[in-house]
């Protein structure tokens, strides 16, 4: 019972790893974006069940992109997957209503958050 995911990260290497992990968990990756602007555009056309969002990106950062997506679709599910371990960003993510703020390599938490999300729906 997989969900449709849009993966956003400016590192191609990291996108590949996240995509592999999501596929291993049985989900389908419907799109990949390299930056915030692309993420907003792809969200509009693809309407995925979940967006995994990197924060530090060269072309529009993840927090700004998330704000834009949420302003257009308040029901959007955004999971911040980041290398940043910064309380300030964690607080902002929570304020936005993101589903989580997880370290990119923390695969267990990714699986757990998605499970919780699926149960709620």
């Amino acid at each position: 019972m997989g969900i449709r995911v849009l993966v956003v990260d400016d590192s191609g290497f990291m996108r590949k790893r996240i995509v592999e992990e999501l596929k291993a968990q049985g989900h389908s990756v419907v799109g990949e974006a390299k930056g915030g602007n692309e993420a907003v555009e792809l969200y509009r056309t693809l309407r995925p069940d979940l967006v995994t969002m990197d924060i530090t990106m060269r072309d529009k950062d993840g927090i700004t992109a998330a704000k834009e997506i949420l302003s257009e679709d308040p029901d959007a599910n955004i999971l911040f997957l980041t290398i940043l371990n910064d309380e300030k960003y964690k607080a902002e993510a929570e304020k936005l209503g993101a589903k989580g703020f997880i370290n990119k390599t923390d695969h267990l938490s990714i699986a757990r958050v998605i499970q919780e999300m699926e149960l709620k729906q």
């Binding site: 400016d10 590192s11 191609g12 290497f13 990291m14 390299k34 290398i83 990119k104 390599t105």
Partner: peptide, 14 residues
Amino acid sequence: INDLAANYQEVLLL
């Protein structure tokens, strides 16, 4: 080249 640098950064930060 920017993509290359992004990957480089990512691996180092990991």
